[in-house]
Simulated scan of single mutants.
Amino acid sequence: MKIALVRQKYTPYGGAERYMARLVTCLASEGHEVHIIAISWEGPQTAGVNFHPVQIIKRPGWLKALSFSQGCAKIIEQERFDIVFSLERTLHQDIYRAGDGCHQQWLILKNLGKGSLHKAWTWLNPLQLAYIWLERRMFTDPGLKAIIANSQRGKEDIIRLYGVNPDRIHVVYNGIEPVNPEQSQRDRSRQMLAQEFALGNELRLLYVGSGFKRKGVAVAIRAVARLKAPYRLFIVGKGRTSTYRRLAQRLGIEDKIIFTGPRKDVEQFYLGSDIFVFPTLYDPFSNASLEAMAYGLPIITTQYNGVAELIHPGINGFVVQDPLDDTAIADCILKMSEPTQRQLMGKQAAETAAAFTMQRNLRETLAVINMITTSKQFASLSA
């Protein structure tokens, strides 16, 4: 088959991009003719994979979004692919993977606790209007054969906001590579972090992710400020830190918050920490949360993270209903302050995560692709 995959660009730090890179390799290995449609692509170079650069208007942002979608449409029309699989809100695709969830739902949650002026600007911002227009047109396009959501909540959001037939939406949870660390690896990682950051026996709390505002870094900082026992909070990921450093300083805990920036050795933090804290406002399915569980960390997250569907409160982590409730997050941390209980919960978290492999994800994704291919071939023969 001649299969096109659409994503704006590749970065080794992006979960969706890593997902697409694996999908590209898998499809090519099965003998498909794979085409990547993107602004730029620096992912794995695989035999049988073709790259189609999309020309865009870079500024302003709303025009970039629209010109990318229009550029993709031109390439799709010229090439006549058998299947178009998009990870972006574009104008023409057979399958859309809603890995970023619903933008409209994110805007709703983004405005929690905000005033009327802030809400008005959100909904009148040209960039947001462009995204909403693209999203609505895409989800209501009769040519869209299937949608892959990465959580049940994501599926429910699409149905509720856009009236999509539930039968067209397939839930395929994200997958990660299996990890089975030995205790000796954990000990080495703890020692490495202790040496690098001058740590003692403090409780080590970990956040991993980019998009600090959306994913609740400020709430995490306010939550740990309520703790009495010694701790350190690692903030691992790409993002502007000045606002959050000032917040920590106002709360008198600037020496307890460690901003590391993006790290290629993030597994050392998973192995060398105690609890994963991820109070996100909105995340359809956080890969970092699943990775933390796989490495044996109990997690604290919110109901707006798709991974919450895998959490059994008090068994392998906790789910907070209000993403702005720093008191509730602090309480969850306190419930895991006892090492033996925390380690038991971490073991349960690892057992839960072990079922969600990349192989399972690819298998279920390919099943959707094959189903749509078969239906298109049948429709062509019947015409």
Results as ranks from 00 to 15, higher is better:
Met1Ala: 14
Ile3Cys: 03
Ile3Asp: 02
Tyr10Thr: 09
Thr11Glu: 12
Ala16Asn: 04
Glu17Arg: 01
Ala21Trp: 02
Ala21Tyr: 04
Arg22Asn: 12
Leu23Ala: 03
His32Glu: 09
His35Leu: 04
Ala38Gly: 08
Ser40Leu: 11
Trp41His: 06
Glu42Gly: 13
Glu42Tyr: 02
Pro44Gly: 09
Ala47Gly: 13
His52Glu: 09
Gln55Ser: 15
Lys58Ala: 15
Arg59Phe: 12
Pro60His: 14
Trp62Pro: 00
Trp62Gly: 00
Phe68Val: 08
Glu77Met: 10
Thr90His: 01
His92Asn: 10
Ala98Met: 15
Gln105Pro: 00
Trp106Asp: 04
Trp106Arg: 10
Ser116Tyr: 11
Trp121Glu: 12
Trp123Asn: 08
Pro126Asp: 11
Gln128Met: 04
Met138Pro: 00
Pro142Tyr: 09
Leu144Trp: 02
Leu144Val: 08
Ala149Phe: 02
Arg153Thr: 06
Lys155Phe: 05
Arg160Gln: 14
Arg160Asp: 09
Leu161Ser: 02
Tyr162Ile: 13
His170Asp: 01
Val172Phe: 05
Asn174Gly: 06
Asn174Tyr: 03
Gly175Lys: 03
Ile176Cys: 00
Glu182Pro: 00
Arg186Trp: 06
Asp187Pro: 00
Arg188Phe: 12
Phe197Ser: 08
Ala198Phe: 11
Gly200Asn: 11
Gly200Tyr: 01
Leu206Arg: 13
Tyr207Trp: 14
Val208Phe: 08
Ser210Val: 11
Gly216Asp: 12
Val219Gln: 07
Val219Ala: 06
Ala225Phe: 01
Ala225Lys: 01
Leu227Ser: 10
Ala229Thr: 10
Arg232Val: 15
Lys238His: 06
Thr243Ser: 11
Tyr244Ser: 09
Leu247Gly: 02
Leu247Tyr: 01
Leu251Ile: 14
Ile257Tyr: 07
Ile258Arg: 04
Thr260Phe: 10
Arg263Glu: 11
Leu271Val: 02
Leu271Met: 09
Ile275Arg: 10
Pro279Val: 13
Tyr282Thr: 09
Pro284Ile: 14
Phe285Gln: 03
Phe285Lys: 05
Asn287Cys: 04
Thr301Gln: 08
Thr302Cys: 07
Tyr304Asn: 14
Asn305Pro: 01
Glu309Asp: 05
Ile311Cys: 09
Phe318Glu: 13
Val320Asp: 07
Asp325Ala: 12
Asp326Arg: 00
Ala328Phe: 06
Asp331Ser: 08
Cys332His: 12
Ile333Gly: 06
Gln341Ile: 14
Gln341Cys: 02
Arg342Cys: 08
Leu344Met: 12
Gly346Thr: 13
Gln348Val: 00
Ala354Asn: 04
Phe356Arg: 01
Phe356Glu: 11
Thr357Trp: 01
Met358Gly: 00
Met358Ile: 15
Asn361Leu: 01
Asn361Tyr: 03
Leu366His: 07
Ile372Leu: 11
Thr373Ala: 14
Thr373Cys: 06
Ser380Ile: 09
Ser380Gly: 01
